[in-house]
Design a protein around this nucleic acid. Sequence first.
RNA 1: GGACGGUUAGCUCAGUUGGUUAGAGCUACUGGUUUACACCCAGUGGGUCGUAGGUUCGAGUCCUACACCGUCUACCA
Length: 880
Amino acid sequence: MVLMEKTYMPEEIEKKWNALWKEAHCFDVKHDGKPTFTVFMPPPNVTGILHMGHTLNNSIQDVLCRWARIQGKDVLWIPGTDHAGIATQSKVEKVIKKEGLSRQKLGRKAFLERVEAWRKEHGNIIFEQLKRLGVSCDWSRATYTLDPDYSKHVLTAFVKLYERGYVYKGKRLVNWCPISQTALSDEEVIMKQVPAFLYTFRYNIVEKPGQFIAVATTRPETIMGDVALAVHPQDDRYKDLVGLHVQCPFDQTRTIPIIADEVVEREFGTGALKITPAHDPIDFAVGQRHALPFIEVLDERGIVNNQGAPFQGMDRFEARKAVVEALQEKGFIIEIKPYNHAVGYSERADVPIEPRLSEQWFVRYPKVEEAKALAEKELVHFWPKRWIKTYLHWLSNIQDWCISRQLWWGHRIPVWYRKDDPSVLHVSVEGPADPENWDQDPDVMDTWFSSWVWPLGTLHYLDNTEKAKRFFNDYFPAHTLVSGPDILFFWITRMIIASLEFLEDRPLAQRVPFKNIYLTGIVRDAIGRKMSKSLGNSPDPLVLIQQFGADGVRIGLLSIAPQGQDIRFDERFLVQGRNFCTKLWNACRFRQMQGVEAAYTSLDDIFEKLENLSVYDEHLLLSLQKTMLEYDNLLHAYSFSTAIKLLQQCFKNVFCDWYLEVQKNESRHCHAVQDLFLRQMLIMLNPYAPYITEELWHQLHLSESFIQSAGWDLDAFNQRLSKVLSQNQEDIDTVEQLRTLVSELRSLKAANNLASNKQTTMCVNLEPAYSALFKKHKDLILKMVGVQAIDEVSEMPEDMPKIVTLWGTFGIVLMKEEGSNDMANIQKEIDTLTQHILAAEQKLANPRFVECAPQGVKDGVKKLLKENIQKREALKKLLA
RNA sequence: GGACGGUUAGCUCAGUUGGUUAGAGCUACUGGUUUACACCCAGUGGGUCGUAGGUUCGAGUCCUACACCGUCUACCA
């Protein structure tokens, strides 16, 4: 047997196990009749690269999947990528721009080939990165949203919704991105507070020469598109003016009416609102109500068109300046004041969006009420729970979804118009039989329209073979969906709606695509800023993996990710993760140095060898048992950070720093105890740290097969353990008291400036009740504290530094120049004890307390009171 | 404007249905290398649980108000 290396070397070991796992198809779905466990990976952008958000998200999914596998479940974790319409297309457009090309110059077909080539080159980088992190997906089932089979699901969704009357085409005001030149959904628009100006200017009244109405606006460049002025019907200032007309400032021949509409806020600005239906959502509604004309003055690039004379050809921001200057020259401007307001920005291009009138495809959401009912009936659970409110709020205020995009990269809208009569439509997945007579709609669908059928498409719902149907039924719905809350509406809610709509033949409970939704926090930097490319505050996960090992990164990250709370990321935590791995490594190395059997040591073997257990052994195994139970509960409750901290604490404090140190000072060794502890600890740590635990599992010869097949039957384990343990609670208490005593005596030494390695002599005045216990464990105490002898005395010498413990008063023998007795400290301790004693006495003297409090609480108070009094008496003796 | 979070040690956070003397890790300080590990061990210091009230025998935990920080959402043009 070759001795393990002195430190854990993640890189080679990670490589080794990645290869072996792949070779053995460890993560392939088995479909062997065992209970299934499905997870859908939120598909990252196909050309994206791994960032901290992915790292957190996928680590959590991996914990869930690996834990399920250990429990013997048949796990299916489906990975995939998203074609990411706008993001990918604009990336490639930037690249070809450098070659002096544009997509228009290339033409649709050639451009799409370029994008596809780009995808082939840059796609799946993220898969390789995820593999480095150690995620256990079934890679053979990786799905891409433009895969032919997957696309069929997307197009079918469109066609079905069209047939059912949920999809319609309409000329509406949409969010228009002048850079990408496409419509955007409301969710792709980011509202930003920006400093701007509020311009107040005059509109001369035609019927009353010399009189005018003052109007406030932030968008003077749209004045040329004004078709009315609106005031509130109850506004006394303007009541008499309704029905009259005003003159347009740049086209004196054009007059527009003054109308009354309740949408106008009397308190804002001047109480008069200019109506530009083609360029503002509110104005659009007013325009429809009053049957006003729609005048567009900006084109698709945000440039003033021929309706906007004399500013034609100017960009919208140039035009704003020019219009204001022109108004100033005419003396129409009354006031210009700074004004902060929210402006919608295009998520991708980061420029203000332009509300623009255009013809688009819309979806009216089906199954909204059912989607609400699912959450209310707890057929889908949110973790943390509070997200249910946000979910319901969105569903209650849901707006029709603009799904067409004026892009080329994506699923093309499956609608054809007859060449000789474009009002004749053909809508189908396959297209018309005589394509030469038809023109297909040029637009593609919103990327989110493709990902909302993710649970159906990845499981090949439309495949009608018996085998495929059975597969779908066995793996749908998923157990948990893990995602950031930022895409709760974009994606999660829509997946629920799509599954509800397209699985109509199933009962409600079986149409929900996942039973649990776990929403992670957002990863922030050390000073609380969101991690982003532009700030450059996001570390490269691969560099971190190289520095700390994949396991170190995973443990570090998960230990600071409390349920649904944002994460303050700091490399310090990864250092801790790595350090823990080293500790684990060394504890197993230590075990190996004591001799490991050449044959495999199964759980049965270990239990067989558990005999003649000392109280220390029992104490350790009971700690293990308690930890196993708590760990199981914590994972059920998605408390990932608490769970890993629990394991770390048990492993370091109880096993390494206490049990192993005790073992070093004991002649008798029961290796089976260590083996059992390490075995169970490795199993529990495996979901968090798959590589190192797999390696150690084999180094310690715990099994021939992979750790993932170890099994986890808590009840059976507890029963077996109960048989070998004496289960004497007093013994366990004794060991806890011993730990405290050792710590107190070490403290006595340190307080008197004695180095921890300095052998000293102590004396003790024992509490009679603990005399026997002390004698029994005396040798161990001597060794653990570093003391030559502890002499029992009935009277403590006066000038000796002392400490009062549960078991007795201990004094330390000092050389002349060493230390001194600190009376002030003793007095301080007596004072604190007195406070506690008084509080306890008051409680017990209170009849209401005695009457109401449960017996356990009362007993606890009494016991503590007794101990505190005992301790205080001993301390008082020292002062006397 | 609305909704939802958060506020506990210098920092990052635990603290389950109210119940015994409020915890951990990191940092700081002190000391140490004994059968693994300095990516280690031992010890010390540090908190009137955001503020003000209330309910209760008992409140970090429940209620009310306020303050501050944050997120989402709608935006009054």
